[in-house]
């Protein structure tokens, strides 16, 4: 890890332990990882950590955060995360949300505008654009894993992970992240039907960064999502799927750094 060690901590809200990890040094940036939590190991974030303190909060059910049974969806997660952010007392900070993490940004920012100074949405879930018969977000759970990999990655080789050689504790996190994603996002699938009626409340400067070849949340979905927030910017990243920060770190960093500056 080029940016040095991860500093792991736990904070307790509502009697549950929530994992908070920090990486790098400099102006703080909050990171809400995607449901697979691939971000900490990415070269793009390691680079960003050279001059920022990246603060990763694992929502309940992800990473090493506890998950009480009463939590049923991203809206619950957003209220818990607001308690975490209040306790961390970071002041308004820039936030980058990947995939599910972007959805959580939208859930928080529609409810309370005190936590964030700038919003970066990366290939995020959260809104429903089309009608009942339209599938805005392709279904990762009824589709063969090989096809899902092609949706996720412009270059599927970049997404391959050698699970059998991973440590058991890490595999537990992988398996639990999958389970928690289903628990929270199964129905409605990857969206909150009310969010389009609330998202106008977001006045914070926003950037949407989108891998152009994403087969799960296609770029047309990303553009429609971005148009729901007045004045937001949109940066399409060519030759990248659902993880532009991993497939095209330089293009990703260029957009994000100029927005954060």
């Amino acid at each position: 890890m080029t940016a040095g060690a991860i500093r792991r901590d736990f904070i307790t809200v509502l009697d549950m332990k929530v994992e908070v990890e920090r990486m790098g040094k400099g102006k703080p940036v909050l990171v809400l990882s995607g449901e697979e939590q691939l971000e900490q190991a990415s070269a793009a974030l390691a680079d960003l950590a050279k001059d920022h303190e990246l603060i990763f909060v694992s929502p309940p059910g992800f990473g090493r955060s506890e998950r009480p049974d009463w939590i049923s969806g991203p809206e619950d997660l957003s209220f818990i995360l607001m308690d975490v952010l209040s306790a961390l007392n970071l002041g308004p900070v820039p936030v980058i949300g990947f995939s599910l993490g972007g959805w959580l940004i939208a859930e928080i920012a529609t409810k309370d505008d005190r936590f964030f100074s700038k919003l970066v949405f990366v290939n995020s879930y959260g809104v429903k654009i089309g009608g009942p018969f339209d599938r805005d977000i392709n279904d990762i759970w009824t589709t063969h894993a090989d096809k899902v990999a092609k949706w996720k990655w412009h270059d599927v080789e970049k997404g391959k992970r050698d699970f059998p050689s991973m440590a058991e504790d890490d595999l537990k996190i992988v398996a639990r992240n999958v389970e928690s994603t289903a628990r929270f996002c199964w129905q409605p699938y990857m969206h909150n039907p009310k969010l389009t009626k609330r998202i106008h409340r977001i006045k914070t400067p926003s950037l949407f960064v989108w891998g152009e070849n994403d087969g799960i949340t296609p770029v047309t979905y990303g553009r429609a999502y971005s148009q729901l927030i007045a004045g937001s910017k949109f940066a399409a990243i060519p030759n990248a799927g659902h993880f532009p920060h991993i497939e095209q770190p330089e293009a990703f960093l260029k957009s994000v750094r100029s927005f954060l500056a």
């Binding site: 699970f163 059998p164 058991e168 595999l171 537990k172 992988v174 398996a175 389970e179």
Partner: peptide, 10 residues
């Protein structure tokens, strides 16, 4: 989770 860990391990 435990069974899914075993599945990931093949």
């Amino acid at each position: 989770v435990d069974l899914n860990v075993k599945a990931l391990q093949g």
